[in-house]
Amino acid sequence: MKKISAVLAAILIYSSAFAIDTAAYTTEENINGVIVVDDINSASKISRLSISGKKATCKSTYSDRNSNISYVKIEQTLEKSTFGLFFGVSGTNWSKTVYSDYAVYTNSKANLECGTYRLKTVFTVKTKDGKTETITVYSDEKTVK
């Protein structure tokens, strides 16, 4: 019992230390000279998936009021559930870059197989002073019957 408690306590302490290290790594990480930080104040990000028959309409929206935004890149992937895990559907990787502080991106995919789907949207926002935000938002799951 004492050994089990000691092992779990060690994992607990290690994971706490690891979490702190991860946060520090994230704020200091440089990708191509750009500092990666968390949410940069963008008001709303929404990922919407609509199914009609065997056709999926994928719509992602980004909204903010920020004159410091250089661009917003929206990357969409339609994912299908297989044994409880989601994988990208072939031919459904879409990407668009908008030089504004608001954006909407719509794509569709027809002739879907039966199953459960969701839309994964990755929003990458870059500001004029070099900061970058990357947030992933998933839509609700929808079923094609």
Partner: peptide, 22 residues
């Protein structure tokens, strides 16, 4: 100033990420 108005079907408004940090 900016005024923005939008609406969508309820079934599509799920997991909307809003910046409520401030």
């Amino acid at each position: 100033d900016r005024i923005s108005f939008s609406f969508s079907p309820k079934s599509l408004y799920k997991n909307a990420r809003l910046n409520t940090e401030f």
